[in-house]
Amino acid sequence: MSTTITTPSVDASCAYCESRIFDHDPICVRDCTADCGSPTYFCNYACLSAHIDESDLTAGNVCEWSSD
């Protein structure tokens, strides 16, 4: 499997707040458990974190640690 990396357009918008991503510190996210689909861009970690919380994306995916 290979993934092609391209730079988004200068007018690309944040998936969460719809701000221009390059006006901030952009982050590209891909779901690589499903053939690395199209990237989703967020303008910063705060928007990515808010998206994760509001979409409940951590439910069922929490790592467990045991000292045993």
Results as ranks from 00 to 15, higher is better:
residue 68 D to H: 12
residue 9 S to D: 12
residue 59 A to R: 15
residue 4 T to K: 13
residue 33 T to A: 08
residue 6 T to F: 07
residue 13 S to K: 15
residue 51 H to A: 12
residue 7 T to P: 00
residue 24 H to K: 14
residue 41 Y to I: 01
residue 26 P to R: 07
residue 50 A to C: 04
residue 8 P to Y: 05
residue 18 E to F: 05
residue 58 T to I: 01
residue 63 C to N: 13
residue 42 F to D: 06
residue 42 F to T: 06
residue 7 T to S: 04
residue 58 T to P: 00
residue 43 C to V: 03
residue 52 I to G: 01
residue 52 I to Q: 06
residue 35 D to Q: 12
residue 36 C to E: 02
residue 28 C to H: 00
residue 56 D to L: 13
residue 66 S to L: 01
residue 46 A to Q: 10
residue 37 G to I: 04
residue 46 A to D: 14
residue 34 A to V: 12
residue 65 W to N: 02
residue 67 S to R: 13
residue 43 C to I: 04
residue 48 L to N: 10
residue 44 N to L: 03
residue 41 Y to Q: 06
residue 2 S to I: 07
residue 47 C to W: 02
residue 41 Y to H: 13
residue 58 T to Y: 01
residue 1 M to Y: 12
residue 24 H to G: 08
residue 55 S to R: 02
residue 26 P to N: 08
residue 68 D to T: 11
residue 65 W to A: 11
residue 63 C to D: 11
residue 11 D to A: 02
residue 20 R to V: 10
residue 58 T to W: 03
residue 7 T to F: 07
residue 47 C to F: 02
residue 3 T to Y: 10
residue 22 F to H: 06
residue 45 Y to M: 11
residue 68 D to G: 14
residue 38 S to V: 14
residue 4 T to F: 04
residue 45 Y to L: 11
residue 61 N to A: 05
residue 49 S to R: 10
residue 32 C to A: 09
residue 30 R to C: 09
residue 3 T to Q: 10
residue 66 S to Y: 10
residue 8 P to W: 08
residue 56 D to P: 00
residue 64 E to N: 06
residue 42 F to P: 05
residue 53 D to A: 14
residue 7 T to C: 07
residue 10 V to A: 15
residue 21 I to L: 08
residue 63 C to Y: 14
residue 10 V to D: 15
residue 18 E to M: 08
residue 25 D to H: 13
residue 34 A to G: 00
residue 34 A to C: 03
residue 15 A to D: 01
residue 9 S to I: 01
residue 4 T to S: 11
residue 25 D to W: 06
residue 25 D to N: 13
residue 67 S to N: 14
residue 43 C to D: 15
residue 35 D to R: 09
residue 11 D to H: 09
residue 3 T to G: 07
residue 29 V to H: 05
residue 53 D to E: 15
residue 31 D to E: 14
residue 46 A to I: 11
residue 65 W to D: 06
residue 42 F to C: 02
residue 19 S to C: 12
residue 17 C to R: 03
residue 54 E to A: 10
residue 65 W to S: 09
residue 48 L to W: 11
residue 12 A to S: 10
residue 13 S to G: 02
residue 61 N to R: 15
residue 10 V to K: 15
residue 9 S to W: 01
residue 2 S to C: 00
residue 39 P to L: 05
